[in-house]
């Protein structure tokens, strides 16, 4: 079995939840989201992040604002959750927790 391909599939499924969870804590721009996701391993790749943010914003889950921060040479696009995004995150969290608990129970029982 190709473990790399399997990991990619896992990341694909988790990318949306990871981004919503990071933005649920505070407003962030793209690179900050990547750094936040990177702290727990490479959960979201750079090539996937920006299309995902664009799609979530188009769907009304995220809102954004442009800011030219001190010391930055280019404007940064900051994302935050909308009410709809917060509701989605609140719905996804328990689903993820149940899924995680079920898989962990089975995997650890097999060890």
């Amino acid at each position: 079995m190709d473990l790399g391909s399997w990991q990619t599939q896992l990341r694909k499924g988790a990318a949306e939840l990871v981004v919503l969870a990071l933005l649920g804590r505070k407003e962030r721009y793209g690179l900050e989201i990547l750094e936040g996701a990177g702290e727990a391993g490479e959960l979201v790749t750079e090539g996937a992040l920006y299309p995902l943010l664009t799609r979530l914003e188009r769907e009304g889950k995220l809102a954004s604002r442009w800011a030219l921060d001190e010391g930055a040479s280019h404007p940064r696009k900051y994302y935050r959750l909308t009410g709809e995004g917060e509701r989605l995150l609140a719905e996804m969290r328990p689903v993820w927790s149940r899924f995680h608990a079920q898989v962990t129970t089975i995997v650890e029982r097999e060890q």
Partner: peptide, 24 residues
């Protein structure tokens, strides 16, 4: 504009990490 800003901070490492611009 957003990708340009991202690459301005990430540098050429970001160019490789984003993959081919046509694919993106």
């Amino acid at each position: 504009l957003e990708i340009r800003g991202h690459l301005a901070e990430r540098g050429e490492a970001g160019v490789a990490a984003l993959g081919a611009p046509e694919a993106l």
